[in-house]
Amino acid sequence: MQLLDIRNLTVEMQTPQGVVRVLDKVNLQLSEGEIHSIVGESGSGKSLLAKAIVGFINPNWQVTADRLWWNGQDLLAMTPKQRRHITGRDMAMIFQDPNAYLDPNSTVEQQIIEAIPQGDVRGTFMRRRVDRKTRVKRLLHRVGIRDHESIMDSYPFELSQGIAQKVSIAIAIAHRPRLLIADEPTTAMEPSTRLQIHRLIARLAVSQQMSVVLISQDVASILPETKRLTMLYCGQLMETGPANEVLSEPAHPYTDSMIRMSLQTQQQLPHKARLPTLPGTIPTLRHMPIGCRLGPRCPYAQKTCVKAPVATHERQRVFHCHFPLLDTTP
């Protein structure tokens, strides 16, 4: 059974100019222990997708889905309280700017203790205190912080970004979640720190038997351990499939352009050559094109692109395009 099963998730937002679909029929399947990367430029709705999973969407927005199942339970049918319980027990989330996501007025120790489930510590009052402290130390060691004494008494504003992100990961794994959602955890970090955090997440995924949804802006900063990859553009799913296949043999023009835009994958770019980017800019929310939203910018677009393409299933891969780059005729 899939751990997380999302079918046709749609999020609509009311604006003075009318209803805007910020997520348009997105599918996502995730099995136990899998690392899934979601890639998309800004405004693609990737953070919104993450928020929809943990249930933190502005209550004024309309969330509909044919299926939003967690471990066989329908999340949309639950009361907010039940949902919060599930989220708190099974899921955890880390964010782009870790310092802002830590309470500025409590110490690291207090914040990690708060995340340790009550049932984990037993015994007398003093026993529990000591027990909690050792647990905090162990958690900090697990996320690669050796200097636990000084970090435990620190306040978030005294931490560097990398350390703060490690602390948020420690908080996130304190209750042994089955799913970790990492929303651009390494954007705006130094390359070495970024590498550390990435390795940490990958290692924890294995050692904690934890699924990971990693959200990133470009294909270069996804984990090498990524099993499946999903490409989002303007709230529409472009392509999804096993990461190595998608990256080596993109089916969707958007995936193709994202790969070619990324400098890391394109080292043999000739001197003074133009960077192969898509023409135009990302449309604003109010001016979404009809049909395939990539349409106006797509080099292969034709008349039929004003209709939304249906999903094409090709072994483990799914893509939404009228004119895929992949030869689909068997």
């Binding site: 919060r84 708190g88 409590s106």
Partner: peptide
Amino acid sequence: PFVKAARARGLSEWRVLVKHAIP
């Protein structure tokens, strides 16, 4: 954000308020 994060951790609204928002 830190209040949102606390909520995402599944803390009850009361605890979020008393421990994080009010101080």
